[in-house]
Design a protein around this nucleic acid. Structure first.
Lengths: 106, 106
DNA sequence: CACAATACATCATATCACGAAGTATATAAA
DNA sequence: TTTATATACTTCGTGATATGATGTATTGTG
C-alpha cells in the first residue's frame, strides 16, 4: 500500500494496540501485523514520539531477566483516538470528492 | 485536519480535479477548496511530481496575455485513481482495527 | 555451538507539505 | 494616478516522518 496513505493512521494504530491493555514494542508489532505492518525502527520512533506528547506513559519491567518497556495509554491518548474519528469523517468527504462520478452536462 | 492524514489523498485529489476537464493550477486550488485546502507551493510541487510520473501532461496556453499551464490526465493517472480505490479498501480495514470495540473477557 | 526469536536503540536518508518570498500582469478602488 | 487585489506560476529552506541498516544483548532451540 502507498506509504503516504499509511502515515496518518500509523500513530493511532499504535495507540489502539495498547488501549485494551498495556503492551510492549515487540508485541505491538505482532498484534498489528494482520492489519498493518511497520518496521521496528518506525514503531520505536512512534512510541518515543507518543511518549513525548504524553499520549502514553512507560514503565520498565523485567521479564525473564530481559527488559521490557510497557506502554500505557493516557487520557490524552484516548482523546487522540476520538479526534481521529472526527478527522476520518472529514477524510471520507474528501474521498467522496475523489471518487464521485462526474455527470456530463452535454 | 492532521497533515499526515492528508498526505495520501492530496495527490489523487489533484488528479481528480483535472479528470473531468483539463485545468490549471490556480483553478485547481479553487475547485478543491470546498473539500480540501492546499497551499500553492504544495500544489505546484505535486503537479510537477505527477508530470514527472507521467500521470499528466502539460501544455502552455496564453490567456489574456498571461500564461496558463493546462494539465491533462493520462491513462497512467486514471490507473492511479483506480489503484487508490483499492488502497482505500485496505485502509478501511485498518480503520476498523483502530475503532473496533474491545470486548472484555472477564 | 550455531541460529532463530525476543527486545530495544540509533543513525542516515528520502519523501513530502508548507510557509515565505519572488516575478509578472490585469483590473478595481482610492 | 496610485494602491490594492486577483490571477498565475516559481523557488527555496525547513520540519516532520517512515524506513533500512546496523548494533547490543539475552533466551531458547536444533
Amino acid at each position: 500500500m502507498d506509504i503516504q496513505l499509511k502515515r496518518g493512521i500509523l500513530e493511532v494504530c499504535v495507540l489502539k494496540a495498547i488501549k485494551k491493555e498495556d503492551s510492549y514494542g515487540y508485541k505491538i508489532i505482532k498484534d498489528m501485523k494482520p492489519y498493518i505492518e511497520m518496521s521496528e525502527s518506525t514503531l520505536y520512533t512512534i512510541l518515543k514520539r507518543l511518549e513525548h506528547q504524553e499520549m502514553l506513559i512507560v514503565r520498565t519491567e523485567e521479564f525473564n531477566s530481559r527488559l521490557r518497556k510497557y506502554y500505557h495509554i493516557t487520557s490524552k491518548g484516548l482523546e487522540r483516538l476520538n479526534e481521529f474519528v472526527e478527522d476520518w469523517r472529514e477524510l471520507m468527504l474528501i474521498y467522496q470528492f475523489v471518487t464521485k462520478e462526474d455527470v456530463s452536462n452535454d
